[in-house]
């Protein structure tokens, strides 16, 4: 599965990275070289391998449904690039309809 410049452009878009044209080719080559070393994994027979049990991890601990809120030693506006009236501000989306499908 060779990585093309278009693939790089696509994943750069997914990762919100702007890649210049000249670096695009270079990166495609590097990714191909790296992924070339990964091909060896296809030869491994893993049909009988169970992966969900992570070694060292016990079951997920659960937290009581109570405060207090985790203490913050600095204000948000000391960290945020832009705030107004308590809101974080970001450049307007190209269109409202680019809405999140968060839920």
């Amino acid at each position: 599965m060779a990585v093309t410049r278009d693939d790089v452009a696509h994943i750069a878009g997914l990762a919100r990275l702007a890649i210049s044209d000249d670096r695009m080719t270079e990166l495609a080559e590097q990714l191909n070289a790296i992924l070339g070393h990964m091909e060896v994994l296809q030869q491994v027979d893993t049909r009988h391998v169970e992966t969900t049990a992570q070694e060292g991890n016990e079951a997920l601990p659960l937290r009581p449904d109570a405060g207090p809120r985790f203490a913050m030693h600095r204000r948000l506006d000391e960290m945020a690039p832009e705030m107004r009236d308590g809101f974080f501000l970001v450049p307007r989306l190209a269109t409202h309809e680019d809405t999140s499908d968060a839920s």
Binding site: F87, P91, A102
Partner: peptide
């Protein structure tokens, strides 16, 4: 189960989207 996202308010400030988490 999943977690909710914050709120994006598009019509409060011109040219900007306001985020409430």
């Amino acid at each position: 189960m999943e977690e909710d996202a914050g709120k994006s308010i598009h019509d409060r400030y011109p040219g900007a989207t306001a985020i409430d988490l």
